[in-house]
Nucleic acid binder design. Sequence first.
DNA 1: CCTTCCATGACCAATATGAACGCAACGGTG
DNA 2: CACCGTTGCGTTCATATTGGTCATGGAAGG
Lengths: 237, 237
Amino acid sequence: MSDIRVLVVEDEPVASAAHAAYVGRMAGFMLAGMAPDGQSALRLLGELAAAGEPVELVLLDMNLPDLHGLDIARRMRAAGILADIIAITAVREVAIVRSAVAIGVVQYLIKPFTFATFEDKLSSYRLFRQQLASPESGAGRTGASQSDVDQAFASLRAPSELPLPKGLSVSTLDSVKEYLKQHSGSVSATEVMAALGMSRVTARRYLEYLADAGTLTRAPRYGTPGRPENEYGWKRP
Amino acid sequence: MSDIRVLVVEDEPVASAAHAAYVGRMAGFMLAGMAPDGQSALRLLGELAAAGEPVELVLLDMNLPDLHGLDIARRMRAAGILADIIAITAVREVAIVRSAVAIGVVQYLIKPFTFATFEDKLSSYRLFRQQLASPESGAGRTGASQSDVDQAFASLRAPSELPLPKGLSVSTLDSVKEYLKQHSGSVSATEVMAALGMSRVTARRYLEYLADAGTLTRAPRYGTPGRPENEYGWKRP
DNA sequence: CCTTCCATGACCAATATGAACGCAACGGTG
DNA sequence: CACCGTTGCGTTCATATTGGTCATGGAAGG
């Protein structure tokens, strides 16, 4: 699958360059263009589409000199341009966020952010694309099932980290993550228990939290008698 | 907080009535109107907005007599109507799903569905609203933080879990389904055993469950010595 | 000193496995 | 043509482990 073409819309040159550089560092994405204001963004979108290389993803700033980001989005939709939008902005008013969702913003990044945050959002977007992009070779399977769609939506909106539920502590979570980094292959709750000297219950609770948050995958390990043991591993992009 | 005003757009009277009834059964939602086609839907949206009671959520069928659902969504956006949209449709083509996401569909329900599924989707939408609606009491907190936004997006995630019979696990069932997607022709229990590394008994139990549920067909495979082997395949509708 | 929070140990429930038995079609043989 | 041994999968059952939950204990904070 070819790279996802990205358009960066941002008026401030420093931020604009930073975003472009970030895009360049991400595998699976390529920079299709940059625009400093709304008018040129819309014009670029039209030109690239006409050239047969339509933009698939727009990193859109909300505060631009000529148009508001929401206006740009509305005009895009009105013009039939269905590129996905990730909002990148310092605006944090709830009403704006709600409107952005309504108009089809798939992710919302609040400035300032680190590359890790940026990477996380774009990765989950890429995963979403992959899950819907593969009709999975199947002969007659032209469509997706409800669970397929659900899964795709889930990876689109999975947060990097939601606030810790009661009963979990930051330091323990860090220990578990640290151990996972070293054993990047696959880990079972029992292994974590033995390695970190904690109880099986605790180890399992943290692994389970990470799996629910979408950071980890969870799959049963077959082949041995007894109830299957869950095996946790980092999610592969 | 007052109820969320819902507009049902659906041409078939039976389905339309069912959706309306479903909305009535959900706490926190109220039926604002019903439309059998795209034109009346757009007109109703305008009228209700003018009357000071704007629709906040549209349950939108994709196949309508006059306009396609995506067209309606596009015109809504062009007209500045920012109601959220939940697509309710039998269309399962991946391209449609992708376009729907791009234009701001927050949930995607594939017909036919049970009330449980419906309830699940609307509940998560309601949660999403609540999380963004509450300015969180805080003194100077006029806006949302990145984690606030993440959390709200996360509620739009669809965990959609339907109960399984005792003795079966979700992840194993997913593995089997995944393998079946890749080999859409026909599969035997022994093949699944070898491919997924599980025992023959387990593989057969899951295939048997899927066959009983009506998802799979089951036919004996003759020609070789030994008791005939059951062969499973996707049911052709 | 009281409250809150987090990890623990012990319990019951869940679920894949292996072995044992039965069954249905195949391929000779009378 | 009928019969019987062979073959391999279907089916059942006990078993082995782990997952999940609950109440408890100790530590940290006010």
